[in-house]
C-alpha cells in the first residue's frame, strides 16, 4: 500500500519535471499576479498597511493554488484514469494527490512569500508562526481542493466550476489563516495564535478524512 503511494508520488514529480512549461507557467502566473499588485497599488516602501499586505498575499496565494491544484484531475487524459484505476486503489490515489498538492502549495506559498518580500515588503515579525500558518494552509488547500478538482473534472465547464465549488469551502481555512497571519505580523508569540493553528489543523483533519472517505465514490465512474 505505502509502496504504491510512493510510486504514484514519484510519477507526479517525474511528470511535473518533464512538462517544464507547466511549472514555468505556474511560476509566471504567480509572478505576474504579484507584479500586478505591485504596479496597481503603486507601492513604495511601507506604503500599505500590514493588513492590506496580508489580504493581498492570501488572495494571490489562493488564486495560484486553486489554479495549480485544479489541474490535478482536470485536463488529464481519459486513458490515464483508466490506467490508474487498474493499478491502484482510490485511497492510494487520493493520498498521493493530497501529499503532492500539499508540497506544491507549500512551494507556491514560499515562492509567493519570497516575491512579496522582494517587490512589496516583508512585515512579518514572527517567522515561526508565519511558516506554520503557511504549512497548515497548504495542507488545508490540498485536502479540500484535491477532492473538488476530482468532482469538477467530471463536469463540462470544469474551470468555472472549480472556482465556484472551491471558494466557499476554502473560506474557513482562509479566515483562520488571515487571523493567524495578523498575529504573526504584529509579532505576537506563537501561543497567541495557537487557537487559530489548532483550528486550521482540525479543519485539515476533517477535510482530509472526508476526502479519503468520499473519493472512492467519484473515482468509480
Amino acid at each position: 500500500m505505502n509502496r504504491i503511494i510512493v510510486q504514484l508520488l514519484k510519477k507526479e514529480f517525474i511528470l511535473e519535471l518533464r512538462r517544464k512549461s507547466v511549472i514555468a507557467g505556474l511560476g509566471l502566473y504567480l509572478f505576474s499576479l504579484i507584479f500586478i499588485c505591485y504596479l496597481t497599488f503603486n507601492l513604495k516602501q511601507n506604503a500599505i498597511s500590514p493588513a492590506t499586505w496580508s489580504a493581498l498575499f492570501w488572495l494571490t496565494i489562493l488564486f495560484s493554488v486553486v489554479n495549480s491544484v485544479a489541474k490535478s484531475f482536470i485536463g488529464e487524459k481519459k486513458g490515464v484514469f483508466i490506467y490508474l484505476y487498474t493499478i491502484a486503489s482510490p485511497q492510494q490515489i487520493i493520498i498521493s494527490k493530497i501529499l503532492y498538492n500539499a508540497l506544491l502549495s507549500l512551494l507556491i506559498s514560499l515562492t509567493g512569500y519570497l516575491l512579496f518580500s522582494i517587490f512589496i515588503f516583508n512585515p512579518v515579525q514572527d517567522q515561526l508562526t508565519f511558516f506554520l500558518v503557511l504549512l497548515l494552509t497548504s495542507i488545508g488547500f490540498s485536502t479540500s481542493l484535491s477532492l473538488i478538482s476530482g468532482i469538477a473534472a467530471k463536469a463540462n465547464n470544469s474551470n468555472v466550476l472549480m472556482a465556484v465549488l472551491s471558494f466557499p469551502v476554502v473560506i474557513s481555512i482562509l479566515l483562520m489563516a488571515v487571523r493567524a497571519t495578523k498575529n504573526a505580523l504584529d509579532g505576537l508569540e506563537l501561543s497567541a495564535s495557537s487557537d487559530e493553528l489548532l483550528n486550521l489543523l482540525a479543519i485539515n483533519i476533517i477535510s482530509g478524512a472526508l476526502g479519503y472517505i468520499l473519493f472512492p465514490y467519484i473515482w468509480r465512474s
Binding site: L147, I148, I151, L165, L210, G211, L214, Y217, I218, R220
Partner: peptide, 11 residues
C-alpha cells in the same frame, strides 16, 4: 446524483 451527494456531504 453521485457527485452531488459527495459535494453535499463535503460542503
Amino acid at each position: 446524483a453521485r457527485l452531488g451527494a459527495v459535494y453535499n456531504i463535503f460542503a
